[in-house]
Simulated assay, not measured.
Amino acid sequence: MGANSSRKKMSSPTKLASSKHTATVIFLHGLGDTGHGWLEAFTQIAKPHIKYICPNAPTMPVSLNGGFEMPSWFDIKGLDPKSPEDEDGIKKAAKSLQDIISEEETKNNIKSDRIIVGGFSQGGAVALYSALTTDKPLAGILGLSTWLPLHKSFPQGCKGNKATPILQCHGKSDPVVPFTMGNMTADLLKSFTSNHELKSFNGLGHSSSPQEMQDVQVFIDKVLPHE
C-alpha cells in the first residue's frame, strides 16, 4: 500500500483571537500526535490579537513503524540523516501548510508577514521546509526538536525568508531526534539565513518544557506585536 493511499481529511483545531484578529500562528504537531495538545499549550500563552491554528495531520502508513497507520505529515523511512526521504510527501505537506497561509491572506485579510509557521519534530520539519521554499515573507519560523528535511537541496532551494527570524529549540537529551541533528540543522540554517537562534535545554528529551514555551512566547511577542 502506498504512503498516500489512506490519507484522511485534515482538520484544524483552532483558537480564535479574543479581540481583533491581526496575526496568526500555524503550528504542526509531531508524528502520531494531533494538534489538540499543542493548541492547549498555546492557549496558555495566547495573546488576544493572535489566532492559533494547530492542524491535524492525515493518517497514513509510516515505514519507520512497520507500515502502521498513524497521523503523519509524510512517510519517515528512518531517523538517520542518511536515511532515504519521502520527497513527494514532504513537498505535499509543505504545500498544505502554504495553502493555510494563503487562506489566512484571502479569507481573513492577514498578510503573510503577520503569520508565524512552526512545528514540533516532524511538524517542525514541514514548517522549516515550507517557510524556506515559499517566496511569501513570514513574521517568524519556529522549529522545536526538529530538523531540516531534504537538506541537500539547500541553500540553492531557498526561495525566501532568508532574513526572517527563526527560533530553533532542542533538548540535549532528545533520544528521537538527537541534539546533534538539531545542531547540524542550525549550522546549515546559519549558512544562508541571517536571523537564526538555537536554544538548547539540558535534560530535555523529545518533548517541550515550561522554559521552552516561555522562550516561544517571547519570540511570538517580538515578531507579532499588537497592531
Rank of each mutant, 00 (worst) to 15 (best):
D174L: 01
F120Y: 08
G66P: 11
N56Q: 04
S121P: 07
I100A: 06
F192G: 02
F201W: 06
P178V: 10
K92V: 13
V25W: 03
A57L: 05
K15L: 13
H151F: 12
K82A: 03
V218A: 13
G30M: 04
K92C: 12
Y52Q: 02
P155L: 14
G203H: 01
F42I: 06
L39Q: 05
E105D: 06
G140M: 00
L150D: 09
N202H: 01
S112A: 15
G2E: 12
L224M: 09
S19I: 03
G123Q: 07
L132Y: 08
M70T: 01
D99A: 07
S173A: 13
A46L: 10
A186T: 09
A57W: 06
P149D: 05
K51C: 07
L224I: 10
A46N: 12
G118I: 08
Q98Y: 04
S83D: 13
P58M: 10
A93V: 06
L79M: 09
Q98S: 07
S209W: 07
V216I: 15
F27P: 09
I26Q: 01
S102R: 15
P175W: 03
H151V: 11
G140R: 00
P58H: 03
A17L: 15
I101G: 05
I26L: 02
H21I: 10
E69Q: 11
A125L: 03
T59C: 08
A139V: 09
G118W: 07
D99S: 11
T34V: 13
V176W: 04
S207P: 00
T193Y: 07
G37F: 02
N108P: 03
S145I: 02
G182S: 00
V126T: 03
I45E: 07
S208F: 12
A46H: 12
V176Q: 00
T193Q: 04
A17N: 14
L28A: 14
P13I: 14
N161W: 03
A131I: 00
E69S: 14
H36A: 09
D113T: 13
S63N: 04
V216K: 10
S6G: 14
G37S: 10
N56H: 05
I53R: 08
F179Q: 01
M184V: 13
S6E: 11
D86T: 02
I110C: 09
L79W: 03
L204R: 08
L132W: 13
C54Q: 05
S63F: 09
V223K: 06
L64F: 04
F74K: 09
L79S: 08
T43K: 12
K15E: 12
N195A: 14
L28V: 05
C54L: 10
N109V: 09
G37K: 05
Y129V: 12
N65I: 03
Q44K: 14
M70W: 11
M70S: 01
A41L: 04
S200A: 11
